[in-house]
Structure formats: C-alpha cells, structure tokens
Amino acid sequence: MEEFQASKPIYWQIVDRICHQIVRGEIQPGEKLPSVREMAIQTGVNPNTVQRTYSELERMAIVESKRGQGTFVTEAKDIIIELKSRLQREIIEVFVNNMKELGYTKEEMIIGLKNFVEKEDRG
C-alpha cells in the first residue's frame, strides 16, 4: 500500500504519480495501466477514486481507454513532450517563488542555478 497526504485529493496524487512515472520512462508510451481493481489493491485506495484518476488522465489525453481492453498510455509524442515541459514548469515555478520570497534577483537565480548545474557535472 502507498502513502498519501490525507488532506489532498487522492485521485490527484495518483494522477501526479503516474505522470511522473511516464516522464521518468518507468511507464512506456502504449503501455497498459493496471485495471481499476488492481490499482486499488496496489495503492490501498477506493476504486471509485482510482476510476476518477483514470478519467482525469483520459481528459488530459495522457491515457486512452479501449473498450473491453483497458487503459493505455498515449503513444502521441507531442502529449508526452507537453507533459514533460509541464512538470518542468511546475518545478521551476516552485523554485522561482521560493527564491523570490528570499529576496534573490532574477540574475542571482540564473547564476546560482548555472553554477549548481556545472558543479554537478564536474561531480
């Protein structure tokens, strides 16, 4: 069973996890997702909640449900690319807001980020 934050919608937390798994390549384009029941057992979550997760992913065009076969991750490259850049934007937004709150300028943020990344490259 997985851990969830009890004060945030659980359907959305599962949407988020699946999106991350797709971007990391742990779930491949065209791959079949577990059935609602399987996913409910894996996560320890109510099946209606899992159903809502799948409906939301379908609305976002990230998955497609094929009648009688199950739910599959999209093979459309543009959607996966868009998902990747959306997650990137979200992380950058959090970073930038935190830096702003501490009083850093745009230039300082960019220099700091550049230095950090280069240092990481050098190991």
Binding site: Q5, A6, S7, K8, P9, I10, Y11, W12, T49, R52
Partner: peptide, 14 residues
C-alpha cells in the same frame, strides 16, 4: 471524503 480534501483541504481526521 475527496470533496473534503478538494474543497476544504482537510483530511478526515482534521
């Protein structure tokens, strides 16, 4: 319960 989380940001215990 999902509405509690979504509209009020509350867990069941809270």
């Amino acid at each position: 319960v999902e509405e509690l989380r979504e509209t009020k940001g509350l867990s069941v215990i809270e």
